[in-house]
Design a protein around this nucleic acid. Structure first.
Lengths: 347, 347
DNA sequence: TGCAGAATTGCAAACGTTTTAAATTTTTGC
DNA sequence: GCAAAAATTTAAAACGTTTGCAATTCTGCA
């Protein structure tokens, strides 16, 4: 019934050769006679020989896998980039014959524990970590172990170097501010989250820097903060901002989901976007194109980033470069219809 | 620098016990004295011992992994369910201590070759296959090998039994028709794809069956077909349908992306949804909630399905049940604002 | 033909675990 | 206090591969 798997031993005996020779022949060693190499390759192909991963990993110490720990959030929360990110990683890995292992961290489980398990069980040759927190124990752990990894995102400041790829959110937020300023806006709103993620600081700092660069004392910035996954609190915070006696004319949101909430609540409050209120997001999620009037946002090309992360990690694994690899990717503005000139009169 | 990994041998010698005893103690064998088991567990915890996956897999023949082959499509096409699906699989697997292997099939690469590699290299104890085609060589291969698998989707008819979980698209399409019929619609449009995927037939058949059940000769059905990933052709086909002298009053789309195209083109053509045209989709993608006026669709709860698939597969791996496991999940209608009563007068 | 040296092939150990069968220690019953 | 039984522990083989080193075969040349 269930077809057995061909092993090196079987292949060897069917060819009248030793296991060693067959192994070397398949690996393409020059020391094996060309004729033998061809004969072995032919037989292996015909027998459908596929080397056993476990055996190979055991002896070589290399698994050919790259690990990613997937945290499970609430029952209805799916990381909106997961699909893109994984597709990109897969693309980057397959070019080098590597595959991805996805270890899930249950909701109540520390992500670090799962990461440790992946690393120390020898399942992976390197790992990717995402969503870097202000104080990130994963980073510290991996560094302590000297285990190959690439971070998607950066620490704010660190006393050690590591491999990372990040989206230049600071630049994007500066660009957003400049564009809105040039459209006449002076009163800005920022909708952000309360979690200690570094990308939040980087983006906010980019905005602050752009404001400072203008040196215009008439610029004003209101900030609305809510926990990332608390939709109710988010809506409340947004409404507090929109319904203030003197509301901003332009709102920049930390990411699209927040921007979409602003658009919904603005429309619910009878405000017209972008006539009464300009809104700019970040991420370019699919819904941002569909939500009327079309959200102006930044595209970070997650898939491409993930692909590069895979490349970087494979380089780190293979070459262990002395200098850490770092890449800062500039997101591109996706201008849609949610931004426009500042309204003349105030309500 | 790079911390070494503790092995069973080290743990054993530090405890003054044999490898065998330590192995058994950690596995919780009753034959090992309770006191010894506790002592070993304590030492293992303290040393941070994690068993080597490769070694364990090699000897036991079980890897603790479940495989999924991820086909890479065009540069900008990401499977819209991938994130949800993987999250669900992860959730289902983690409960049993299993993890997921994601093998990517490059664009030009046969998915079957990658699947074979995953199966025959012993990387996985079972696999999940999705997007079942009318004639699916993966299914045939896995069955021939007797390798544990669960299919997400079904063959239309098969002379053999296998494990599957499917969304009851036939039922949903029947429900959509009935609802629209009761709203007075008699002239229907179906927007579908040309690829030989079984879900297409199942849904279309469900629609046909519902139409037949009514036995109303005045019911008319127009069909627009386009290749799944050819956006241009899709738009053309939709417009041909919408701009026909006698267009349908209600359109059912094979899935949301097609429905969204219909909504866009309808609005471009100056049609008001749902006043002039009712539209119903399938999948409940995120954008369907945002695209005005809000798409009525069916939610197949991919994440939950994936979770069940994981459970099923783990059962299959562990118990090799004689009878195949099958589950038909009924999707739930998500009524939004894109459907309504049939218009009185015709254009 | 014989021999050095190059070319080719093979033996055996190792990777870290599980598991069978056997050895050792402890307990029990009389 | 001793044999038998029960409880506990261990030695060694096995999983399928890679690889250092040794063995064998071949080639060219005297």
């Amino acid at each position: 019934m269930s077809a057995r798997v061909t092993t090196l031993k079987e292949l060897a005996s069917s060819l009248g050769l030793s296991i060693t020779t067959v192994s070397r022949a398949l690996a393409g060693h020059q020391q094996i006679a060309l004729k033998t190499r061809e004969r072995v390759a032919q037989a292996a192909r015909q027998a459908g020989y596929v080397p056993n991963t476990a055996a190979r990993t055991l002896v070589s110490g290399r698994s050919g896998f790259v690990g990613l720990v997937l945290p499970i959030r609430g029952p209805n929360l799916v990381d909106s980039f997961l699909g893109e990110f994984i597709t990109g990683l897969g693309e980057g890995l397959v070019a080098h014959g590597a595959d991805l292992i996805l270890a899930t961290a249950a909701q109540d489980q520390a992500e670090l524990a799962v990461l440790r398990h992946v690393v120390e069980s020898g399942r992976a040759d390197g790992v990717v970590i995402t969503r870097i927190a202000e104080v990130d124990e994963r980073l510290a752990y991996l560094r302590r172990r000297g285990f190959p990894f690439v971070a998607h995102g950066r620490l704010l400041d660190s006393d050690f170097a590591y491999n990372w790829l990040d989206t230049d959110g600071a630049h994007a937020f500066g660009e957003a501010f400049d564009m809105l300023y040039d459209l006449g806006h002076r009163h800005f709103g920022l909708v952000t989250i309360s979690e200690p993620m570094t990308f939040r600081h980087l983006r906010q700092d980019g905005l602050a820097a752009a404001i400072a660069r203008r040196g215009d004392p008439s610029v004003r910035l209101d900030v609305a903060t809510a926990p990332r996954f608390d939709r109710g609190a988010r809506i409340q915070a947004v409404n507090r901002m929109l319904q203030a006696p003197n509301r901003p004319t332009a709102v920049i949101a930390l990411f699209d989901e927040l921007a979409l909430t602003v658009m919904e609540e603005a429309s619910r409050a009878g405000l017209s976007v972008p006539r009464d209120l300009s809104i700019i997001g970040f991420d370019n999620v699919v819904a941002s194109a569909y939500a009327p009037p079309g959200l102006t946002t930044f595209d970070a090309s997650i898939r491409q980033c993930a692909r590069e992360i895979a490349d970087m990690l494979l380089t780190v694994i293979a070459d262990r470069p002395a200098e850490p690899l770092t890449r800062l990717i500039r997101p591109t503005l996706v201008p849609r219809a949610s931004h426009g000139p500042a309204p003349r009169a105030r309500n």
